[in-house]
Amino acid sequence: MTTKADIKSSNRRLARNLLIVAVAMFGFGYALSPMYDLMCKAFGLNGKTGRIEEQAAAQPVDTSRTVTVEFTGLATSGLPWEFKPLVKKMEVHPGETTEVKYLARNLAQEEITGQAIPSVSPGISATHFNKIECFCFTQQTLRPGESREMPVRFVVDAGLDKDVHTITLSYSFFNTDKLSAKKYGGEALGQGENHAHRAHPAMASGS
């Protein structure tokens, strides 16, 4: 027969252990973030593209196969830039290193720094789309009115699924500075009248 004091102390002990479980699960919620990144990298999920060095890209060109690569780009609403690919689409052979250029022009009266985030569709082919050089590897800073042609050098590797005939490479260009983004309407929902979240039509370009 257990006494009341026994029950009380075992209640306390159990409560403490359960609280530790709760704290651990809070940590687990955070751990999901790096786990998600690892999964995306490992399985090429979510259109995240690979990056490889020049020499690693060298592989026999499979001229018997052509793949259409389409290019699009979007300057998000917080970035007052014109941004578009100079070539809309092209045909490449797997294994062949190809270079295309995107154009960015700062339409604002001040210097702005942006970061481009790539995405490949269909997502399943992202692991076979490798970039050797890309303007998205670093942030881009443009002076007022400055325009810049920016290269992307890529290779589609031979492992690409035979059923995939078209790959779309898309970039979203973001303002790296939150306050500046807000100024240009990046946080359109803010406090008040403007409830619609829309990109500046004049500045959103691309396909």
């Binding site: 699960m25 809070f26 687990f28 919620g29």
Partner: peptide, 8 residues
Amino acid sequence: AVMPVLAG
């Protein structure tokens, strides 16, 4: 197990 994950 899951309320702390939502809190996170």
